[in-house]
Amino acid sequence: DIEITTNGEEDAKRVIKELQKRNLEYHIEVHGNQWVIKVR
């Protein structure tokens, strides 16, 4: 598993777009303004 910590929603959406392009499965956890994306 890979864990990507982003700085808020805009940053997270940019990362998610890339993950979707590669058809990767991911899970999002929001901790305040930090979005942690866990990639399987």
Rank of each mutant, 00 (worst) to 15 (best):
K21W: 08
N23F: 07
K21I: 10
N7K: 09
I2V: 09
K21A: 13
K21V: 07
T5N: 06
V30I: 14
V30W: 06
N23T: 03
H31M: 11
V15P: 01
A12W: 05
E9P: 12
Q34W: 11
K38M: 09
K21S: 10
I16Q: 03
I2G: 04
I28M: 05
R22G: 04
I4N: 01
W35S: 02
H31I: 14
Q20Y: 05
K38Q: 05
D1T: 13
D1L: 14
R40V: 14
H31T: 09
N33Q: 09
K13H: 10
K13V: 09
T6S: 04
D11W: 13
N23C: 06
R22W: 13
V15C: 10
Q34D: 05
E3R: 11
I28K: 01
R14E: 08
E3Q: 11
G32A: 04
Q20S: 07
I37W: 00
W35R: 02
K13L: 14
R22S: 06
R40Q: 09
D11P: 04
H31W: 09
I2K: 05
I16E: 04
I37R: 00
G8A: 07
Q20A: 09
H31R: 15
E9M: 09
D1F: 15
I37H: 00
R40W: 10
Q20G: 04
E10F: 08
I28W: 03
E3T: 15
V15N: 01
L19D: 00
V39A: 03
T6M: 11
K13D: 06
T6L: 14
E29D: 05
H27N: 09
G8V: 07
T5D: 03
E9W: 15
E9K: 08
R22K: 09
V39E: 00
V39W: 06
T6G: 13
E29S: 09
I28H: 01
V30D: 02
V36L: 07
N33M: 08
E25M: 12
W35P: 00
W35M: 04
I16V: 07
T6K: 03
V30C: 10
N33H: 08
V39H: 02
H31L: 10
Q20P: 01
I37Y: 00
I4H: 02
E10H: 08
V30G: 02
I4L: 05
V36R: 06
V15K: 03
I2M: 12
V15Y: 08
H31C: 11
Y26L: 04
L19E: 00
V39C: 05
D11Y: 10
I4D: 01
K13I: 12
V30S: 04
K38S: 07
E18V: 11
Y26W: 08
V36H: 04
N33L: 08
V30N: 05
E18T: 07
A12Y: 06
I37P: 01
L19Y: 02
E3S: 12
G32V: 03
A12F: 12
I4S: 01
E18Q: 10
Q34F: 13
V39S: 02
H31P: 01
I16F: 03
N23Y: 05
T5G: 03
G32H: 04
E29N: 04
T6I: 15
T5W: 15
T5L: 12
D11K: 06
D11T: 08
N33Y: 08
R14K: 12
D1H: 12
L19Q: 00
D1N: 11
L19G: 00
I28G: 00
Q34P: 01
Q20H: 07
Q34C: 15
N33C: 07
D11Q: 13
A12K: 03
K17V: 10
G32M: 04
V15H: 03
I16D: 00
N7G: 06
G32I: 03
Q20K: 12
V30T: 06
I37S: 00
N23K: 12
V15A: 04
T5Q: 08
I28A: 03
N23H: 11
D1K: 08
G8H: 09
V39L: 08
I4A: 01
I16Y: 02
G8P: 02
I16L: 06
E29T: 11
V30P: 02
N33R: 05
E29A: 06
K17R: 14
R40H: 14
V30Y: 09
N7L: 12
E25T: 14
N33T: 10
V30R: 12
Q34Y: 12
I28F: 04
V39I: 13
E18S: 08
L19N: 00
I4T: 02
N23S: 07
V39F: 09
A12M: 12
Q20L: 11
E9V: 09
D11S: 10
K17D: 09
E18M: 15
I37L: 03
V36S: 02
R22Y: 13
V39N: 00
A12G: 04
G8F: 08
K21L: 13
E29P: 00
V15R: 03
R40L: 14
I2E: 05
Q20F: 05
D11E: 15
K17W: 11
G32L: 04
E10G: 06
H27G: 05
V36M: 04
I16M: 08
R14T: 06
H27S: 15
R40I: 14
E25W: 12
Q34S: 09
E29Y: 10
L19I: 05
L24P: 01
D11N: 10
H27E: 14
N7D: 11
W35C: 04
K21R: 14
H27K: 12
Q34V: 14
Q20M: 11
L24W: 08
R14D: 05
N7Y: 15
W35K: 02
N7P: 04
L24V: 10
Q20W: 06
V39Y: 09
E18G: 05
H31E: 05
V36Q: 03
